[in-house]
Amino acid sequence: MASEKFQNFIDETGDIARFTGRFFKELFKPRFEFNEFFRQCFFIGYKSFPLVAITAFIMGLVITIQSRPTLVEFGAESWLPRMVSVSLIREIAPVITALICAGKIGSGIGAELGSMKVTEQIDAMEVSGTNPFKFLVVTRVITTTLMIPILAVLADAISLYGGFLGANIHGVVSWDLFWNQVFDTLAFGDVVPSIIKTYFFGFAIGIIGCYKGFNTNKGTEGVGIAANSAVVISSLLVFILDLLAVQITDILGLN
């Protein structure tokens, strides 16, 4: 039983890798579906923004409030903006954005493509002379790859604003001082790797959602399974990629 599960795992990993390979092959074939891409930008990028914004704001606020007592113990309360900004920018904002998007976008794509698959809409596209892989998968994967970094940057800004409010609940940090300290602390080594990794997060979320949706079977029940496993696998991948990103930036000496 265990070995069968393991074999399934290996099978699926290989399948996902081949799917990714196909993505890159189709990516460079002519006729890019611009209209569908813009439509997806709206649904994936714009529609996820409120959710990402609220989460980022709350995370910024909460992290700041939670960090204060420890810093106060050290008498280093004035370091609050510095500490909070580093943890938000380097880790929390990008990962929270990616996880929220894995939940919202990953399941959305998984369910959408899954239902298209079981209701033969994907076959219908194929018959209608439109490459469904290009029309559905390539556009969505590119959209997630491009939109999640954008959402992450906005989440960075919003979470820092949340941090500013959090720092002012018990203490007083002026607007200017807060931002001065934040930008004094942050270096390119904090910002650039954290932005770069969100591109990979976005790509992983898109490719897993599309893979799961595109390979749905077993009818309506399969749609639910596709949406669910898309969320589970892409969330897990976000963490794995995050681990890799930390190690790579460490090796490159950017930490």
Partner: peptide, 22 residues
């Protein structure tokens, strides 16, 4: 597209400002 454009531009501006300040 206009709405998407707004958030894309906003985010790009934020990033550029942040990188400039750093």
């Amino acid at each position: 597209n206009l709405r998407v454009g707004i958030i894309v531009i906003l985010s790009t501006l934020l990033l550029i400002t942040a990188l400039y300040l750093i």
